[in-house]
Design a protein around this nucleic acid. Structure first.
Lengths: 357, 357
DNA sequence: GTTAGCACTTGATATCAGAGAGTGCTAAAA
DNA sequence: TTTTAGCACTCTCTGATATCAAGTGCTAAC
């Protein structure tokens, strides 16, 4: 019997078991199902069906005389086929929108806020990830003299971000020299990724700068730093105390192991950077390549703009996570972020701000 | 009998109890003391002394037939008088220096790195705080036209940071208009704190701008945003799994409560922003105004430059924290940060970077 | 002032019986 | 053929009891 061929009643029983276990956390028995649900049959029948579902691998018995618990496959089937879609209330959407708008300033802050939001909405631990990338190039350089010994390099990146670095020289440098440096940077480095800025190019610029060649090194260093700032991965967790709300993490050993993995960050960064699926991803237990997550699930969604992944938000919780609620929350948040990112810059029309819907 | 008048032997016993409890975590009995230590007397004598120390409030008995545990006052006395200073190995200093240098880029990153470092060095949870402040003013504005509908405002702050914001206009604005706007901002807003930028000033600028008055609103908004970015408090924890290494946090309830408080951030921010002591601060148990910390200690040190507090780093752990180690680690890290912050900008002399020692 | 010895207290640990929950199986009913 | 009722069986959980070990306080001797 294949997955798709589960009888309607089996599906209903599986769904009931999963949902009962999600909010109780304990094995569910046949009697409980027959009471709570709309299934009209006796506990014995349920028992028979459950035995078959166990044979098929969707349910598991912790010990002989306990109720059933969904297996990983059980959760997977539930998430893929049984969890219903829900309608979003406009009220909620508006609320999220408002919260996110508070600081629509930088993508980092949006991600942070979003993860915080996800955590409070779902009661699981929120995660915000800025994945490693290698996509930034510069589109424009400006140099602003500050005083006789200092100037600032302003860099506009392919992503539209504006970044600045301050440089101090011990030798006074005239404005015209700085102008020349800016022109050269614009001519030689625009459009190049970190891996494309080669030594010959740098040396070429140094040659053109003549006696001021020493400035080039610092300038290039600034470029690298900015690229690294934008491309370098980062990760942040919110609502860690939420782990403690679920008995599966009361085993201190387990929790500690999980936290250690999460804090080392690399594994999660890799895990998430790999998938460039646009949709919500659900990793149940050992489906994730990270071994420690055997008893946890990770649900995440990439935040994209113009095809580029700007970041990832998600939640981490026990395997018996309330997938229905989590999927909804992440969907809502993601939608709102898209709206906000869409018109990230201040948009002015004659003194009044305009918001895109 | 006052604190200072504890007999030498009592001091030694207190010290022994504190240190034994710090690395064992369990109540220490008279027998243990007599074995481990250099005190040459019998367990009965120790018992008598301990009974007196308990009367004086430095020790506490969890129950009648258990060993003694240091009280809050006991720890306080230990930290103030008994913990010896230590010599720093040059090796360690160099190591920290190297680690911190990796990204001497922004104060945020330094703090973050420092807290991570503190956590790994001490095996407690590291904390990095950027306190709320209201000290930023602008010292210089530049406007860079990007294309017909976009320009960037570059702001140089009193702290020397360079910040940029992008602005989009739906109406094309010429370079000369932007130049005028920049001049006005420089003339009117430089040196003013957030609370000093009043409506009359803004309206004055708008008047001068004539038909382009609508630009002023966005510009001012940018200024506020930047000030908020720099002044707004933030807090970040590292090494949370370290909590779980100590049995005092195996009570899930307690840990959860602590984490909740830490994540709400406000209490800690206030707590730390209040003290502008330059030295290392040690808050033991209920000495902190945060109720939940009754069983925890917080040790922190402000990071200053030119008298301004840029941030705070510290560690949080059980009350029986290894104060000796923690004080040393934080001292070392703080020193290194000071060195690094001292020459924050890139300093160039004829092509070679110079580093201040 | 110090020490040895002993009775006492108390938490921790192990063992055991009984209760409760839930199953699997068999035989009867639909 | 499917469903149901009944019953014996298994396994965990709980609470009670007994035992153990650690550490103290106190008294009497040094």
């Amino acid at each position: 019997m294949k997955q798709g061929e589960l009888s309607e009643r089996k599906k209903q029983i599986l769904k009931a078991v999963v949902e009962a276990h999600i909010d109780g956390g304990e094995p569910v028995g046949s009697k409980y199902i027959v009471q709570s649900n709309l299934l009209f049959c006796s506990s014995a029948t349920i028992r028979n069906e459950m035995a078959e579902l166990e044979e098929l691998g969707y349910l598991v018995q912790p010990h002989t005389s306990a109720g059933r618990v969904p297996s990983e496959a059980g959760y997977r089937f539930y998430v893929d086929s049984l969890v219903e879609q829900y309608a979003r209330t406009t009220h909620e959407v508006a609320q999220i929108n408002q919260l996110l708008r508070v600081k629509m300033d930088e993508i980092d802050q949006i991600l942070d806020m979003a993860s915080r939001l996800a955590s409070t909405m779902t009661n699981y631990t929120g995660i915000a990830i800025k994945p490693k990338a290698n996509t930034v190039t510069m589109t424009r350089f400006e140099i602003i003299p500050m005083d006789i010994n200092n100037f600032a390099i302003v860099m506009i990146t392919s992503g539209g971000a504006v970044k600045t670095k301050k440089v101090r020289t011990e030798i006074a440098v005239s404005d015209s020299v700085l102008k020349k440096l800016a022109d050269l940077l614009n001519a030689q480095l625009c459009g190049l990724g970190a891996d494309m800025i080669t030594l010959p190019i740098i040396m070429g610029i140094e040659e053109e700068m003549g006696e001021y060649a020493f400035l080039v090194n610092s300038a290039v260093k600034c470029v690298y730093e900015v690229m690294n700032e934008i491309d370098g991965g980062d990760m942040r967790l919110t609502g860690i105390n939420n782990f403690l709300k679920y008995p599966e993490y009361s085993d201190t050993e387990k929790l500690s192991e999980l936290l250690r993995t999460l804090e080392s960050r690399d594994e999660i960064l890799d895990l998430v950077s790999g998938s460039d699926n646009d949709k919500i991803n659900v990793l149940i237990g050992s489906e994730s390549s990270v071994k420690v997550m055997n008893n946890s699930s990770l649900v995440y969604i990439p935040i994209k703009k113009d095809g580029r992944t700007l970041g990832v938000i998600g939640v981490i919780g026990p395997r018996r996570m309330n997938y229905k609620q989590v999927l909804k929350a992440l969907g809502d948040i993601s939608d709102n972020i898209s709206i906000i990112i869409g018109d990230e810059e201040l948009s002015i029309t004659d003194g009044k701000e305009k918001e895109s819907k």
